[in-house]
Design a protein around this nucleic acid. Structure first.
Length: 510
RNA sequence: GGGCCGUUAGCUCAGUCAGGCAGAGCAGCUGCCUUUUAAGCAGCGGGUCGAAGGUUCGAAUCCUUCACGGCUCACCA
Protein backbone atom coordinates (compact mmCIF):
# COMPACT_ATOMS: atom_id res chain seq x y z
CA UNK A 1 0.00 0.00 0.00
CA UNK A 2 1.23 3.47 -1.00
CA UNK A 3 4.41 1.80 -2.21
CA UNK A 4 6.03 2.06 1.21
CA UNK A 5 7.79 -1.05 2.49
CA UNK A 6 5.97 -2.69 5.36
CA UNK A 7 7.64 -3.13 8.76
CA UNK A 8 8.01 -6.79 7.91
CA UNK A 9 9.79 -5.99 4.67
CA UNK A 10 12.10 -3.56 6.44
CA UNK A 11 12.91 -6.18 9.04
CA UNK A 12 13.76 -8.73 6.41
CA UNK A 13 16.12 -6.36 4.64
CA UNK A 14 18.52 -6.21 7.61
CA UNK A 15 21.12 -8.24 5.85
CA UNK A 16 23.89 -8.17 8.40
CA UNK A 17 21.69 -10.03 10.86
CA UNK A 18 21.68 -13.79 11.20
CA UNK A 19 18.62 -15.57 9.89
CA UNK A 20 17.31 -16.11 13.42
CA UNK A 21 17.72 -12.43 14.30
CA UNK A 22 15.92 -11.48 11.10
CA UNK A 23 13.10 -13.86 11.93
CA UNK A 24 12.64 -12.27 15.30
CA UNK A 25 12.53 -8.78 13.83
CA UNK A 26 9.94 -9.94 11.36
CA UNK A 27 7.88 -11.28 14.25
CA UNK A 28 8.35 -8.05 16.16
CA UNK A 29 7.11 -6.07 13.15
CA UNK A 30 4.15 -8.39 12.66
CA UNK A 31 3.19 -8.07 16.32
CA UNK A 32 3.31 -4.29 16.09
CA UNK A 33 1.19 -4.34 12.95
CA UNK A 34 -1.32 -6.52 14.81
CA UNK A 35 -1.53 -3.84 17.48
CA UNK A 36 0.52 -5.66 20.11
CA UNK A 37 2.90 -3.60 22.26
CA UNK A 38 5.98 -5.83 22.43
CA UNK A 39 7.37 -3.93 25.42
CA UNK A 40 4.42 -2.95 27.63
CA UNK A 41 5.00 -1.04 30.85
CA UNK A 42 2.54 -2.86 33.09
CA UNK A 43 2.52 -6.42 34.38
CA UNK A 44 -0.24 -8.22 36.25
CA UNK A 45 1.52 -10.90 38.20
CA UNK A 46 -0.19 -12.54 41.16
CA UNK A 47 2.13 -15.51 41.76
CA UNK A 48 5.70 -16.46 41.15
CA UNK A 49 6.17 -19.85 39.52
CA UNK A 50 6.95 -21.45 42.86
CA UNK A 51 3.98 -19.76 44.54
CA UNK A 52 1.64 -20.93 41.81
CA UNK A 53 2.82 -24.50 42.29
CA UNK A 54 2.46 -24.45 46.06
CA UNK A 55 -0.95 -22.74 45.85
CA UNK A 56 -2.14 -25.69 43.80
CA UNK A 57 -0.66 -28.19 46.21
CA UNK A 58 -2.67 -26.73 49.05
CA UNK A 59 -6.04 -27.08 47.32
CA UNK A 60 -8.58 -29.87 47.34
CA UNK A 61 -9.13 -31.65 44.06
CA UNK A 62 -11.31 -29.73 41.67
CA UNK A 63 -10.90 -26.45 43.50
CA UNK A 64 -9.70 -23.79 41.09
CA UNK A 65 -6.74 -21.55 41.72
CA UNK A 66 -6.43 -18.67 39.30
CA UNK A 67 -2.93 -17.31 38.91
CA UNK A 68 -1.11 -14.70 36.88
CA UNK A 69 2.47 -15.72 36.32
CA UNK A 70 5.27 -14.04 34.40
CA UNK A 71 8.66 -15.11 33.17
CA UNK A 72 10.90 -16.03 30.30
CA UNK A 73 9.73 -18.61 27.77
CA UNK A 74 12.25 -21.42 28.06
CA UNK A 75 10.53 -24.24 26.20
CA UNK A 76 7.70 -24.61 23.69
CA UNK A 77 6.08 -27.77 22.39
CA UNK A 78 3.47 -26.92 19.82
CA UNK A 79 1.07 -29.74 18.95
CA UNK A 80 -1.43 -28.36 16.54
CA UNK A 81 -4.25 -26.68 18.39
CA UNK A 82 -2.68 -27.07 21.82
CA UNK A 83 0.79 -26.38 23.13
CA UNK A 84 2.90 -26.83 26.18
CA UNK A 85 5.50 -24.32 27.24
CA UNK A 86 7.56 -23.54 30.30
CA UNK A 87 8.25 -20.13 31.67
CA UNK A 88 11.02 -19.48 34.16
CA UNK A 89 11.26 -16.79 36.78
CA UNK A 90 13.59 -16.29 39.70
CA UNK A 91 11.66 -18.84 41.75
CA UNK A 92 11.74 -21.63 39.17
CA UNK A 93 9.71 -22.94 36.27
CA UNK A 94 6.07 -23.59 35.65
CA UNK A 95 4.39 -25.24 32.70
CA UNK A 96 1.81 -23.46 30.58
CA UNK A 97 -0.91 -25.40 28.75
CA UNK A 98 -2.16 -23.28 25.90
CA UNK A 99 -5.26 -24.39 24.00
CA UNK A 100 -6.66 -22.74 20.93
CA UNK A 101 -10.23 -23.13 22.19
CA UNK A 102 -9.43 -21.64 25.62
CA UNK A 103 -7.16 -18.81 24.54
CA UNK A 104 -9.03 -17.96 21.36
CA UNK A 105 -7.98 -18.80 17.85
CA UNK A 106 -6.46 -15.49 16.93
CA UNK A 107 -4.38 -15.18 20.10
CA UNK A 108 -3.31 -18.80 19.79
CA UNK A 109 -2.07 -18.34 16.24
CA UNK A 110 -0.12 -15.28 17.36
CA UNK A 111 1.43 -17.26 20.21
CA UNK A 112 2.39 -20.09 17.89
CA UNK A 113 3.82 -17.92 15.17
CA UNK A 114 5.31 -14.85 16.78
CA UNK A 115 6.53 -15.82 20.24
CA UNK A 116 9.99 -17.28 20.67
CA UNK A 117 12.11 -18.91 23.31
CA UNK A 118 13.62 -16.12 25.35
CA UNK A 119 10.60 -13.82 25.19
CA UNK A 120 9.09 -12.66 28.47
CA UNK A 121 5.39 -13.34 28.79
CA UNK A 122 2.59 -13.10 31.29
CA UNK A 123 0.03 -15.88 31.49
CA UNK A 124 -3.08 -16.24 33.54
CA UNK A 125 -5.53 -19.03 34.10
CA UNK A 126 -6.40 -21.89 36.41
CA UNK A 127 -3.75 -24.21 37.70
CA UNK A 128 -4.17 -27.97 37.33
CA UNK A 129 -2.21 -31.18 37.14
CA UNK A 130 -1.56 -32.70 33.74
CA UNK A 131 -1.92 -36.40 33.05
CA UNK A 132 1.73 -36.88 34.00
CA UNK A 133 1.19 -34.98 37.23
CA UNK A 134 2.97 -31.75 36.39
CA UNK A 135 1.47 -28.60 37.88
CA UNK A 136 0.47 -26.33 35.00
CA UNK A 137 -1.51 -23.24 34.09
CA UNK A 138 -4.38 -23.61 31.64
CA UNK A 139 -3.80 -20.30 29.92
CA UNK A 140 -6.84 -18.16 29.12
CA UNK A 141 -4.84 -14.98 28.65
CA UNK A 142 -1.33 -14.61 27.34
CA UNK A 143 0.50 -11.35 26.94
CA UNK A 144 3.94 -10.53 25.61
CA UNK A 145 6.03 -8.58 28.12
CA UNK A 146 9.28 -8.25 26.21
CA UNK A 147 10.32 -9.56 22.83
CA UNK A 148 13.82 -11.05 22.65
CA UNK A 149 15.66 -10.29 19.42
CA UNK A 150 18.59 -12.62 20.04
CA UNK A 151 18.13 -16.37 20.38
CA UNK A 152 19.25 -17.76 23.72
CA UNK A 153 21.17 -21.01 23.71
CA UNK A 154 18.64 -23.81 24.12
CA UNK A 155 19.64 -26.03 26.99
CA UNK A 156 17.67 -29.23 27.34
CA UNK A 157 17.67 -31.80 30.05
CA UNK A 158 16.48 -35.34 30.55
CA UNK A 159 17.09 -37.72 33.43
CA UNK A 160 19.62 -35.34 34.90
CA UNK A 161 21.57 -35.29 31.66
CA UNK A 162 22.07 -31.87 30.12
CA UNK A 163 22.11 -31.37 26.37
CA UNK A 164 23.69 -28.53 24.45
CA UNK A 165 24.66 -26.66 27.61
CA UNK A 166 26.11 -23.18 27.18
CA UNK A 167 29.61 -23.96 28.44
CA UNK A 168 32.23 -21.93 26.59
CA UNK A 169 33.98 -20.11 29.42
CA UNK A 170 34.92 -17.06 27.41
CA UNK A 171 31.40 -16.55 26.16
CA UNK A 172 29.95 -17.26 29.58
CA UNK A 173 32.12 -14.59 31.22
CA UNK A 174 31.86 -12.03 28.44
CA UNK A 175 28.10 -12.42 28.25
CA UNK A 176 27.34 -13.34 31.83
CA UNK A 177 23.70 -12.34 31.32
CA UNK A 178 23.34 -15.22 28.87
CA UNK A 179 25.13 -17.57 31.25
CA UNK A 180 22.82 -16.59 34.08
CA UNK A 181 19.75 -16.75 31.87
CA UNK A 182 20.29 -20.32 30.74
CA UNK A 183 22.33 -21.89 33.55
CA UNK A 184 20.32 -21.88 36.78
CA UNK A 185 23.19 -23.46 38.70
CA UNK A 186 25.25 -20.34 37.94
CA UNK A 187 22.55 -18.18 39.48
CA UNK A 188 22.67 -20.48 42.50
CA UNK A 189 26.40 -19.82 42.97
CA UNK A 190 25.77 -16.10 43.30
CA UNK A 191 22.88 -16.64 45.69
CA UNK A 192 25.21 -18.71 47.84
CA UNK A 193 27.82 -15.98 47.64
CA UNK A 194 25.29 -13.46 48.94
CA UNK A 195 24.33 -15.79 51.80
CA UNK A 196 28.00 -16.20 52.75
CA UNK A 197 28.54 -12.45 52.92
CA UNK A 198 25.39 -11.81 54.88
CA UNK A 199 26.31 -14.61 57.32
CA UNK A 200 29.72 -13.05 57.90
CA UNK A 201 28.08 -9.69 58.57
CA UNK A 202 25.67 -11.28 61.00
CA UNK A 203 28.47 -13.14 62.75
CA UNK A 204 30.46 -9.97 63.32
CA UNK A 205 27.48 -7.73 64.07
CA UNK A 206 26.28 -10.15 66.75
CA UNK A 207 29.68 -9.90 68.39
CA UNK A 208 29.60 -6.13 68.57
CA UNK A 209 31.76 -5.32 65.55
CA UNK A 210 31.10 -2.03 63.81
CA UNK A 211 30.94 -2.10 60.03
CA UNK A 212 32.85 0.83 58.52
CA UNK A 213 33.90 2.14 55.13
CA UNK A 214 37.40 3.42 54.43
CA UNK A 215 38.86 5.04 51.31
CA UNK A 216 39.28 3.08 48.12
CA UNK A 217 41.24 5.96 46.60
CA UNK A 218 44.32 6.42 48.73
CA UNK A 219 47.25 8.86 48.54
CA UNK A 220 49.52 6.07 49.76
CA UNK A 221 48.85 2.36 49.65
CA UNK A 222 49.75 -0.35 52.10
CA UNK A 223 48.71 -3.36 54.13
CA UNK A 224 49.84 -5.99 51.64
CA UNK A 225 52.74 -6.82 49.37
CA UNK A 226 51.39 -5.96 45.95
CA UNK A 227 51.68 -3.51 43.12
CA UNK A 228 48.86 -0.98 43.05
CA UNK A 229 46.75 0.52 40.30
CA UNK A 230 47.56 4.18 39.91
CA UNK A 231 45.07 6.92 39.08
CA UNK A 232 44.94 10.68 39.17
CA UNK A 233 42.66 13.33 40.62
CA UNK A 234 42.49 16.21 38.17
CA UNK A 235 41.23 18.95 40.47
CA UNK A 236 43.60 18.13 43.30
CA UNK A 237 46.45 17.47 40.85
CA UNK A 238 47.27 14.43 42.94
CA UNK A 239 48.29 10.89 42.17
CA UNK A 240 46.09 8.35 43.93
CA UNK A 241 46.19 4.59 44.33
CA UNK A 242 43.37 2.08 44.40
CA UNK A 243 43.73 0.36 47.72
CA UNK A 244 45.47 -2.99 47.94
CA UNK A 245 44.03 -3.59 51.41
CA UNK A 246 41.94 -1.84 54.07
CA UNK A 247 44.37 -2.54 56.87
CA UNK A 248 46.05 0.73 57.70
CA UNK A 249 42.82 2.73 57.78
CA UNK A 250 41.02 0.19 59.93
CA UNK A 251 43.80 0.30 62.51
CA UNK A 252 43.60 4.09 62.56
CA UNK A 253 40.03 3.52 63.74
CA UNK A 254 41.28 1.36 66.62
CA UNK A 255 43.53 4.27 67.56
CA UNK A 256 40.41 6.41 67.46
CA UNK A 257 38.72 4.30 70.11
CA UNK A 258 36.56 1.81 68.22
CA UNK A 259 37.35 -1.58 69.70
CA UNK A 260 35.91 -3.86 67.03
CA UNK A 261 35.65 -2.83 63.40
CA UNK A 262 35.27 -4.59 60.09
CA UNK A 263 34.97 -3.78 56.43
CA UNK A 264 33.88 -5.91 53.50
CA UNK A 265 35.10 -4.31 50.32
CA UNK A 266 36.95 -4.40 47.07
CA UNK A 267 40.73 -4.40 46.91
CA UNK A 268 42.78 -3.99 43.75
CA UNK A 269 46.13 -5.55 42.95
CA UNK A 270 47.99 -4.94 39.75
CA UNK A 271 49.32 -8.41 39.18
CA UNK A 272 48.79 -11.66 37.31
CA UNK A 273 45.44 -13.33 36.82
CA UNK A 274 44.92 -16.96 37.77
CA UNK A 275 42.30 -19.34 39.09
CA UNK A 276 42.80 -17.73 42.49
CA UNK A 277 43.69 -14.17 41.47
CA UNK A 278 41.53 -11.45 39.96
CA UNK A 279 42.72 -7.82 39.69
CA UNK A 280 39.82 -6.75 41.88
CA UNK A 281 38.59 -8.97 44.65
CA UNK A 282 36.49 -8.77 47.77
CA UNK A 283 38.07 -8.97 51.15
CA UNK A 284 36.77 -9.03 54.70
CA UNK A 285 39.06 -7.50 57.27
CA UNK A 286 38.33 -7.15 60.95
CA UNK A 287 40.32 -5.71 63.86
CA UNK A 288 39.68 -6.41 67.51
CA UNK A 289 41.30 -4.47 70.33
CA UNK A 290 42.58 -6.31 73.37
CA UNK A 291 43.06 -9.46 71.33
CA UNK A 292 46.04 -11.27 69.82
CA UNK A 293 46.49 -13.68 66.93
CA UNK A 294 45.39 -16.66 69.02
CA UNK A 295 42.05 -14.98 69.77
CA UNK A 296 41.74 -14.20 66.08
CA UNK A 297 42.28 -17.87 65.17
CA UNK A 298 39.26 -18.81 67.24
CA UNK A 299 37.12 -16.12 65.68
CA UNK A 300 38.27 -17.12 62.20
CA UNK A 301 37.40 -20.79 62.48
CA UNK A 302 34.05 -19.99 64.06
CA UNK A 303 33.25 -17.41 61.39
CA UNK A 304 34.02 -19.69 58.46
CA UNK A 305 32.11 -22.59 60.00
CA UNK A 306 29.17 -20.27 60.66
CA UNK A 307 29.21 -18.96 57.07
CA UNK A 308 29.16 -22.54 55.74
CA UNK A 309 26.36 -23.56 58.08
CA UNK A 310 24.26 -20.53 57.14
CA UNK A 311 24.94 -20.67 53.41
CA UNK A 312 24.90 -24.43 52.90
CA UNK A 313 23.33 -25.89 56.01
CA UNK A 314 26.43 -27.92 56.83
CA UNK A 315 30.05 -27.53 57.86
CA UNK A 316 31.11 -30.59 55.90
CA UNK A 317 31.79 -29.67 52.30
CA UNK A 318 33.19 -31.22 49.18
CA UNK A 319 35.68 -29.31 47.09
CA UNK A 320 37.38 -30.76 44.01
CA UNK A 321 36.40 -34.24 45.10
CA UNK A 322 37.78 -33.90 48.62
CA UNK A 323 35.64 -33.92 51.71
CA UNK A 324 36.51 -31.08 54.06
CA UNK A 325 35.37 -30.64 57.65
CA UNK A 326 35.16 -26.95 58.56
CA UNK A 327 34.02 -27.40 62.15
CA UNK A 328 36.36 -25.94 64.79
CA UNK A 329 38.92 -26.41 66.08
CA UNK A 330 41.21 -26.40 63.06
CA UNK A 331 44.72 -27.74 63.01
CA UNK A 332 47.33 -25.32 64.33
CA UNK A 333 50.72 -25.97 62.82
CA UNK A 334 53.85 -23.92 63.34
CA UNK A 335 55.11 -22.77 59.94
CA UNK A 336 58.62 -24.02 60.65
CA UNK A 337 57.32 -27.49 61.58
CA UNK A 338 55.02 -27.70 58.58
CA UNK A 339 57.81 -26.80 56.16
CA UNK A 340 60.25 -29.14 57.87
CA UNK A 341 57.81 -32.02 57.81
CA UNK A 342 56.65 -31.55 54.23
CA UNK A 343 59.93 -30.55 52.58
CA UNK A 344 62.64 -31.78 54.91
CA UNK A 345 64.06 -28.28 55.23
CA UNK A 346 64.37 -26.65 58.63
CA UNK A 347 64.81 -23.01 57.74
CA UNK A 348 66.10 -22.22 61.22
CA UNK A 349 69.19 -24.25 60.37
CA UNK A 350 69.92 -22.02 57.37
CA UNK A 351 70.80 -18.63 58.70
CA UNK A 352 71.59 -16.90 55.43
CA UNK A 353 69.86 -16.72 52.08
CA UNK A 354 72.61 -18.58 50.23
CA UNK A 355 72.46 -21.60 52.52
CA UNK A 356 68.64 -21.73 52.34
CA UNK A 357 68.77 -21.29 48.58
CA UNK A 358 71.10 -24.29 48.24
CA UNK A 359 68.86 -26.40 50.47
CA UNK A 360 65.83 -25.64 48.31
CA UNK A 361 67.76 -26.44 45.14
CA UNK A 362 68.91 -29.77 46.65
CA UNK A 363 65.23 -30.55 47.32
CA UNK A 364 64.52 -29.99 43.63
CA UNK A 365 63.07 -26.50 43.88
CA UNK A 366 63.77 -23.61 41.53
CA UNK A 367 63.86 -20.52 43.73
CA UNK A 368 64.80 -17.09 42.44
CA UNK A 369 68.50 -16.50 42.88
CA UNK A 370 68.22 -12.92 44.03
CA UNK A 371 65.67 -13.69 46.75
CA UNK A 372 66.33 -12.67 50.30
CA UNK A 373 66.07 -15.16 53.13
CA UNK A 374 62.52 -14.18 53.98
CA UNK A 375 61.40 -14.21 50.36
CA UNK A 376 62.75 -17.74 49.98
CA UNK A 377 60.50 -18.93 52.76
CA UNK A 378 57.47 -17.15 51.57
CA UNK A 379 56.35 -17.89 48.97
CA UNK A 380 58.90 -20.34 47.61
CA UNK A 381 58.71 -22.86 50.41
CA UNK A 382 55.06 -22.35 51.20
CA UNK A 383 54.28 -23.34 47.63
CA UNK A 384 55.34 -26.86 48.54
CA UNK A 385 53.17 -26.89 51.62
CA UNK A 386 50.06 -25.07 50.48
CA UNK A 387 48.67 -27.65 48.10
CA UNK A 388 48.83 -30.32 50.80
CA UNK A 389 46.70 -28.38 53.27
CA UNK A 390 43.27 -29.70 52.35
CA UNK A 391 41.68 -29.75 55.80
CA UNK A 392 41.53 -26.31 57.46
CA UNK A 393 44.95 -25.46 58.86
CA UNK A 394 46.47 -22.46 60.56
CA UNK A 395 50.15 -22.05 59.79
CA UNK A 396 51.56 -19.72 62.43
CA UNK A 397 54.70 -17.87 63.51
CA UNK A 398 56.13 -16.31 60.37
CA UNK A 399 59.53 -14.84 59.63
CA UNK A 400 59.71 -11.17 60.54
CA UNK A 401 61.19 -10.07 57.24
CA UNK A 402 58.06 -10.75 55.18
CA UNK A 403 55.65 -9.42 57.82
CA UNK A 404 56.18 -5.68 58.21
CA UNK A 405 52.95 -5.06 60.12
CA UNK A 406 52.99 -8.00 62.54
CA UNK A 407 54.14 -7.86 66.13
CA UNK A 408 57.32 -9.66 67.17
CA UNK A 409 56.94 -12.79 69.20
CA UNK A 410 58.22 -12.36 72.76
CA UNK A 411 61.67 -13.95 73.09
CA UNK A 412 61.97 -14.73 69.36
CA UNK A 413 63.25 -11.61 67.60
CA UNK A 414 63.05 -13.01 64.05
CA UNK A 415 59.54 -14.39 64.38
CA UNK A 416 56.22 -12.55 64.37
CA UNK A 417 52.80 -13.44 65.73
CA UNK A 418 51.17 -14.09 62.42
CA UNK A 419 49.17 -16.86 60.81
CA UNK A 420 47.78 -17.70 57.44
CA UNK A 421 45.08 -20.28 57.00
CA UNK A 422 44.57 -22.78 54.22
CA UNK A 423 41.63 -24.88 53.12
CA UNK A 424 41.31 -27.08 50.06
CA UNK A 425 44.95 -26.51 49.15
CA UNK A 426 44.97 -22.74 48.91
CA UNK A 427 45.34 -19.73 51.16
CA UNK A 428 42.18 -18.03 52.32
CA UNK A 429 43.42 -15.48 54.79
CA UNK A 430 46.09 -13.86 56.82
CA UNK A 431 46.13 -12.42 60.32
CA UNK A 432 48.38 -11.21 63.08
CA UNK A 433 48.90 -9.49 66.33
CA UNK A 434 49.26 -5.94 65.07
CA UNK A 435 52.32 -3.84 65.73
CA UNK A 436 51.33 -1.06 68.11
CA UNK A 437 54.84 0.16 68.87
CA UNK A 438 55.16 3.20 66.60
CA UNK A 439 58.95 3.16 66.65
CA UNK A 440 59.10 -0.52 65.74
CA UNK A 441 56.57 0.13 62.95
CA UNK A 442 58.66 3.00 61.64
CA UNK A 443 61.74 0.80 61.49
CA UNK A 444 59.89 -1.93 59.64
CA UNK A 445 58.56 0.59 57.15
CA UNK A 446 62.06 1.92 56.60
CA UNK A 447 63.22 -1.59 55.72
CA UNK A 448 60.39 -2.19 53.24
CA UNK A 449 60.60 1.26 51.71
CA UNK A 450 64.29 0.63 51.09
CA UNK A 451 63.37 -2.62 49.38
CA UNK A 452 60.88 -0.65 47.30
CA UNK A 453 63.58 1.80 46.31
CA UNK A 454 65.82 -1.15 45.44
CA UNK A 455 63.28 -2.36 42.93
CA UNK A 456 60.99 -4.63 44.94
CA UNK A 457 57.77 -3.31 43.41
CA UNK A 458 55.60 -5.08 45.92
CA UNK A 459 57.22 -3.63 49.03
CA UNK A 460 55.47 -1.13 51.28
CA UNK A 461 56.13 2.56 51.02
CA UNK A 462 56.54 4.40 54.31
CA UNK A 463 53.19 5.69 55.56
CA UNK A 464 54.15 8.52 57.90
CA UNK A 465 50.60 9.32 58.87
CA UNK A 466 50.00 5.73 59.90
CA UNK A 467 53.07 5.81 62.14
CA UNK A 468 51.85 9.12 63.54
CA UNK A 469 48.48 7.48 64.29
CA UNK A 470 50.17 4.65 66.19
CA UNK A 471 52.16 7.18 68.16
CA UNK A 472 48.92 8.43 69.70
CA UNK A 473 48.57 4.96 71.21
CA UNK A 474 46.87 1.82 69.93
CA UNK A 475 45.82 -0.97 72.28
CA UNK A 476 47.07 -4.50 71.60
CA UNK A 477 45.01 -5.57 68.60
CA UNK A 478 44.40 -8.69 66.57
CA UNK A 479 43.68 -8.23 62.85
CA UNK A 480 42.32 -10.52 60.19
CA UNK A 481 41.83 -10.56 56.42
CA UNK A 482 40.17 -13.15 54.20
CA UNK A 483 39.33 -13.40 50.52
CA UNK A 484 35.57 -13.63 50.13
CA UNK A 485 35.88 -14.84 46.55
CA UNK A 486 38.14 -17.69 47.57
CA UNK A 487 35.84 -18.67 50.41
CA UNK A 488 32.92 -18.67 47.98
CA UNK A 489 34.92 -20.82 45.58
CA UNK A 490 35.49 -23.29 48.36
CA UNK A 491 31.88 -23.37 49.52
CA UNK A 492 30.39 -23.60 46.02
CA UNK A 493 32.79 -26.33 44.90
CA UNK A 494 34.07 -24.34 41.95
CA UNK A 495 37.61 -24.41 40.60
CA UNK A 496 38.15 -20.79 39.62
CA UNK A 497 37.55 -17.34 41.08
CA UNK A 498 35.93 -16.43 37.80
CA UNK A 499 33.07 -18.73 38.60
CA UNK A 500 32.24 -16.72 41.72
CA UNK A 501 32.84 -13.21 40.34
CA UNK A 502 29.92 -12.00 38.24
CA UNK A 503 31.98 -10.07 35.73
CA UNK A 504 35.58 -11.29 35.90
CA UNK A 505 38.20 -9.28 34.09
CA UNK A 506 38.93 -10.39 30.54
CA UNK A 507 41.11 -8.77 27.95
CA UNK A 508 39.11 -6.41 25.72
CA UNK A 509 38.34 -7.57 22.24
CA UNK A 510 38.90 -5.49 19.16
C1' G B 1 56.06 -13.41 30.14
C1' G B 2 57.10 -19.25 28.80
C1' G B 3 54.90 -24.11 27.35
C1' C B 4 50.72 -26.98 25.65
C1' C B 5 45.77 -26.89 23.69
C1' G B 6 41.63 -24.49 21.49
C1' U B 7 38.59 -20.88 18.12
C1' U B 8 33.82 -24.44 12.28
C1' A B 9 25.81 -22.39 11.83
C1' G B 10 22.22 -18.92 17.29
C1' C B 11 24.08 -23.34 20.94
C1' U B 12 26.83 -28.16 21.52
C1' C B 13 30.23 -30.47 18.48
C1' A B 14 32.26 -33.82 14.05
C1' G B 15 35.53 -32.88 9.96
C1' U B 16 42.31 -31.12 10.60
C1' C B 17 46.49 -36.83 11.57
C1' A B 18 46.53 -38.31 5.48
C1' G B 19 44.62 -31.05 1.24
C1' G B 20 39.65 -32.57 -3.17
C1' C B 21 31.61 -30.05 -3.21
C1' A B 22 31.59 -27.34 4.73
C1' G B 23 28.50 -31.66 8.10
C1' A B 24 25.23 -33.59 12.54
C1' G B 25 21.89 -32.78 16.75
C1' C B 26 19.26 -28.90 19.01
C1' A B 27 17.42 -23.98 17.69
C1' G B 28 14.98 -21.41 13.04
C1' C B 29 11.36 -21.60 8.69
C1' U B 30 6.94 -24.41 6.09
C1' G B 31 3.20 -28.27 6.67
C1' C B 32 0.60 -32.07 10.01
C1' C B 33 -0.60 -32.89 15.06
C1' U B 34 -5.91 -30.54 21.45
C1' U B 35 -2.15 -33.75 28.02
C1' U B 36 3.38 -32.85 25.94
C1' U B 37 8.03 -32.59 28.53
C1' A B 38 15.36 -33.65 24.92
C1' A B 39 7.31 -34.14 22.28
C1' G B 40 6.77 -36.52 17.32
C1' C B 41 6.53 -36.87 11.71
C1' A B 42 7.71 -34.70 6.69
C1' G B 43 10.23 -30.96 4.08
C1' C B 44 13.44 -26.35 3.74
C1' G B 45 16.87 -22.62 4.83
C1' G B 46 21.21 -21.13 7.69
C1' G B 47 28.73 -20.49 7.42
C1' U B 48 34.10 -14.28 6.84
C1' C B 49 35.66 -22.53 9.17
C1' G B 50 38.99 -16.39 14.82
C1' A B 51 42.13 -12.66 11.38
C1' A B 52 45.95 -11.72 7.80
C1' G B 53 49.65 -13.59 4.69
C1' G B 54 52.07 -17.86 2.33
C1' U B 55 52.56 -22.99 -0.10
C1' U B 56 49.42 -25.54 -3.77
C1' C B 57 45.87 -26.75 -9.81
C1' G B 58 43.04 -26.78 -5.18
C1' A B 59 43.41 -25.00 2.03
C1' A B 60 38.61 -25.53 7.58
C1' U B 61 42.88 -29.05 6.87
C1' C B 62 49.93 -27.65 5.64
C1' C B 63 53.40 -23.16 6.95
C1' U B 64 54.09 -18.04 9.19
C1' U B 65 52.34 -13.98 11.94
C1' C B 66 48.56 -11.85 14.87
C1' A B 67 43.97 -11.71 18.14
C1' C B 68 41.14 -13.93 21.92
C1' G B 69 40.44 -17.90 25.35
C1' G B 70 41.54 -22.48 28.37
C1' C B 71 45.09 -25.28 31.16
C1' U B 72 49.84 -24.90 33.21
C1' C B 73 54.60 -22.75 34.85
C1' A B 74 56.53 -18.13 36.44
C1' C B 75 54.64 -13.92 39.07
C1' C B 76 51.09 -13.02 43.05
C1' A B 77 53.64 -12.79 51.57
Amino acid sequence: MHGFPSLVEIAMSEEELSDQEQQRRVKLARLREAGVDPYPARVERTHTAAEAVSALEGRAEGEAVVVGVAGRLVSMRVMGKSSFAHIEDDSGRIQLYVRSDVLGEEAYELFKRDLDLGDFVQASGETFYTRTGEPSVRVDELRLLAKALQPLPVVKEKDGQVFDAFTDKEQRYRQRYVDLAVNPEVREIFKTRARIISAIRRFLDERGFLEVETPVLQPIYGGAAARPFVTYHNQLKQQLYLRISDELYLKRLIVGGFEKVYEIGRDFRNEGVSFKHNPEFTQIEFYKAYADYRDVMELAEQMVAYAAQEALGTTTITHEGQEIDLSPPWRRWKLRDAIRELTGIDYAEHEDAESLYQAIVRMGGTPEKKSTWGKLIDPTLINYVESKLIQPTFLYDYPLEVSPLAKKKPGEPDIVERFEFFIGGFELGNAFSEINDPLDQRERFLATSEALADGDEEAHPLDEDYVRALSYGMPPTGGFGMGIDRLTMLLTNTDSLREVILFPHLRSRE
